[in-house]
Deep mutational scan, measured.
Amino acid sequence: TFYNFIMGFQNDNTPFGILAEHVSEDKAFPRLEERHQVIRAYVMSNYTDHQLIETTNRAISLYMANL
C-alpha cells in the first residue's frame, strides 16, 4: 500500500520523511487504501500545508512508477 511505501521514509530528513511522520500520526489516514485517487483526495481534503500536499503528489507518482 501507499502507507507502507511512505513509512519506509520514516526518520529520513527529507520531504518524504516529513510526510511519513505526518501520515504515521494521522489516525484517520487510509492505511489500507491502494487507489492513489482516494489517497490524493484524502490529503487534499485533510491537509492544509501546501508543501505536504506537493510532497504527497510526488510520493504517489514515485509509488505508482514502482508498482
Rank of each mutant, 00 (worst) to 15 (best):
S61C: 14
R40L: 15
H22A: 11
N66M: 15
I60L: 15
Y42L: 02
F5Y: 07
M7Q: 06
T1K: 05
I53Q: 08
I60Q: 01
F2W: 05
I60A: 03
T14Y: 03
P15K: 07
G8E: 10
Q37V: 08
P15Q: 10
E54S: 08
A28V: 06
R35D: 15
A41R: 09
Q51L: 14
D12Y: 10
L62I: 10
V23I: 15
M7A: 04
I53C: 06
Y63T: 01
F9Y: 09
V38C: 12
H22F: 13
L52S: 02
N57F: 14
N4S: 13
L62S: 05
N13G: 14
T56G: 06
T1R: 06
P15C: 11
D49V: 05
G8C: 11
V23N: 02
P30D: 04
F5S: 00
S45N: 13
H50S: 13
F16D: 00
V38N: 07
F16Q: 02
N57Y: 12
S24M: 14
H50T: 13
P15V: 11
T1F: 06
S61E: 15
E33N: 04
R35G: 07
Y3L: 02
T14S: 14
M44T: 10
S61I: 14
F16M: 10
M7D: 00
I6L: 14
E54K: 08
I18T: 10
L67W: 08
Y47I: 04
I18M: 11
A65S: 11
I6E: 01
F29E: 03
V43F: 07
V23R: 01
S61N: 11
A59W: 05
L67A: 12
I18P: 02
L32R: 10
T1I: 05
D26A: 02
N66V: 13
L19K: 00
A65E: 12
E21N: 15
T1V: 05
T48M: 09
R35S: 13
A20R: 06
F2A: 00
T48W: 08
E21I: 14
F29H: 05
D49P: 04
A59M: 08
A41Y: 09
R35V: 05
M7I: 08
H22E: 04
A41C: 11
Q10D: 05
I18Y: 10
N11M: 09
S24C: 09
R40Q: 11
F16Y: 08
I18R: 14
E21Q: 15
I53K: 07
Q37F: 11
E33K: 03
R40Y: 12
M7T: 05
L19E: 02
I39F: 05
F5E: 00
F29A: 01
F29D: 01
D26Q: 06
F9Q: 01
E54D: 10
L19R: 01
Q51M: 13
E21T: 14
I53E: 04
V23P: 06
Y3R: 01
L67H: 12
T48C: 07
V43W: 03
Q51R: 13
L67R: 09
S61M: 14
D26E: 03
Y3A: 01
A41E: 14
I6P: 00
A59D: 01
Q37H: 15
A59P: 01
T1Q: 03
A59I: 07
F5I: 02
R31L: 05
V43D: 01
E54F: 07
S45K: 12
Y63C: 04
Y42K: 00
F29C: 03
H22T: 10
Q37E: 15
T14R: 02
V23C: 04
V38Y: 10
L52C: 05
N57G: 07
L52F: 05
E34Y: 15
L62N: 04
T56V: 14
R58L: 14
A20V: 05
L32G: 12
A41G: 06
G17P: 02
H36C: 15
S61R: 13
T55E: 05
A20M: 04
Q37N: 12
R35H: 09
L67C: 12
D49A: 06
S61Y: 11
S24P: 04
L62K: 06
M64K: 09
L32E: 13
A28C: 13
N11A: 07
G8W: 07
A59K: 03
M44V: 10
P15M: 10
Y47W: 14
I18W: 13
T1N: 09
E33M: 05
H50Y: 12
R31A: 05
H50L: 13
L52Q: 02
Q51N: 13
R31V: 07
F16S: 01
I18L: 13
I6M: 07
I18C: 08
T48G: 08
R58T: 08
V23E: 01
F16C: 06
L62T: 05
Y63E: 00
I60M: 07
E34S: 15
M44Q: 11
H22I: 14
I39R: 00
S61Q: 14
S45A: 15
Y47P: 01
N66P: 06
E34T: 15
L67S: 11
F16A: 01
R40V: 12
K27A: 12
N4Q: 13
S24L: 13
L67Q: 13
S45H: 10
D12C: 14
Q37P: 05
L19V: 05
R40H: 10
A59S: 04
F16W: 05
F29N: 04
M44F: 08
N57P: 02
Q10F: 13
Q37C: 13
E25F: 11
H50F: 12
D26I: 05
A28T: 14
D49M: 06
Y3G: 00
T14A: 04
G8K: 13
Q10C: 14
N46R: 07
N46Y: 08
H36N: 06
T55H: 04
T55W: 09
M44K: 09
D26M: 04
T56E: 03
A59Q: 02
Q37K: 08
I18V: 12
